[in-house]
Design a protein around this nucleic acid. Structure first.
Lengths: 215, 215
DNA sequence: TTAAGAAGTGAAGTAACATTCATTTCTTGA
DNA sequence: TCAAGAAATGAATGTTACTTCACTTCTTAA
């Protein structure tokens, strides 16, 4: 045998892999999935297109990995908050705030991933990831209900609603307006307060459906 | 001249147009945007692919029209509720419930549109449409705050959060579970209550951020 | 230094679709 | 019935991007 990977080589390969992931992340953060073709990723990484396939079996799997890594980090942060000190309400506020702040000071792209569509494989990964995000909030809610801070409620639904609420507020029609720091702070606070109110007991009694007026 | 469109012919053409729109709607409701290629739409409508382009300049414009029509209808219904009788809280509940119910008893697909991605042109239309949905809720919120039912809050953010909350709960990970009617009812109620709580004053004081525990 | 084998290259291959267009079929008024 | 013009057809074309592969360049151990 005349060739075996040296430690140095091993390292270089690993670093190449990282560079590809970073390039993909970068492109997606800039222009979304649409802009992140294999050729573009390769160019961004300073490599040929062909080499991408030496490191990743397909475009879909590359993107699944980028997604998983980006959101995995996000989940770690949220979990730390969820398991931290303070009342459930405080932790919920802090968790939403943490995610929102980082998303708004992008290009952090975790949120772009959460909202954007792609190949079926990536879609599946995205759903899993949203589920994981929801699970973090479910934990907080569970504790809050047990402690009597929050009223009894459908945990799955509330968790999904929380994720949906801040995601929409971040990627929806109003987000682009919040370019100035001041607006960002305001938006962050609004979102957090919305979420906290949403899981806390209201002053009034449960609502009964209203009738629509004939138009 | 030996040919001029008769009224009957005019009608037939209009009905063809409708059939194309219906076919596209149908396919999207079934399998999402991905399944709705021009060839498939034509087949579904019982026509040749070429004829689609006699009625619509491009795939994107066809889908924009389908989206606009589907959600336009939805908006009408929501507006009727928003302008109806009852307290703001009741109307908010009713509006969310109305949308949710129809979405869950699909193939109503309005919600599929709201969540799914596509060509840039369709994306733009989708953002506009979400904005419109938000506006309906903004109206209700405005009235509720004025009447002292709801606390002062960021209208744009709250409206966006409401739209995001029920959308996520409808298309996210938990929706597929709600196949049985009973689950659907439960999910609907959970979502509505979440949204109502979210804009109503909580019992507790505004939350302060909590510190994350070192992991 | 050398050659065996790994890594890298990028043009060509392929596939999936939107869109077009030469041809056919249908409608209408005379 | 007829022919002029509209509408419909669907195979061919064009486009875009992922993926492959024959070939080149680089690494390593002897």
């Amino acid at each position: 045998m005349a060739y075996r990977r040296s430690a140095l080589m091993e390292e270089r390969l690993a670093s190449n892999r990282e560079r590809i992931l970073a390039a993909a992340r970068q492109l997606i953060a800039q222009g979304g999935y649409r802009e992140a073709q294999i050729a573009a990723v390769a160019a961004e990484a300073g490599m040929s297109t062909g080499v991408i396939y030496r490191y990743f079996p397909s475009k879909a799997e590359l993107f699944v990995e980028v997604l998983t890594a980006a959101v995995g980090h996000e989940i770690e942060l949220l979990k730390a908050i969820a398991e931290g000190s303070g009342s459930a309400e405080q932790r919920l506020y802090a968790a939403v705030e943490s995610f929102t702040r980082r998303a708004l000071s992008g290009p952090n792209l975790a949120y772009a991933f959460i909202a954007e569509p792609a190949e079926p494989e990536v879609d599946i990964a995205r759903i899993r990831v949203r589920q994981q995000l929801g699970d973090v909030f479910k934990t907080i809610l569970q504790q809050g209900i047990k402690a009597g801070e929050f009223p009894a409620q459908d945990l799955d639904a509330s968790a999904a609603c929380i994720v949906g609420a801040y995601t929409e507020a971040l990627v929806g029609p109003i987000a682009p307006r919040a370019e100035r720091i001041k607006d960002r702070d305001r938006l962050t606070r609004s979102i957090c307060e919305f979420c906290v109110r949403a899981v806390s007991a209201p002053l009034t009694a449960p609502a009964a459906p209203a009738k629509a007026r004939k138009r």
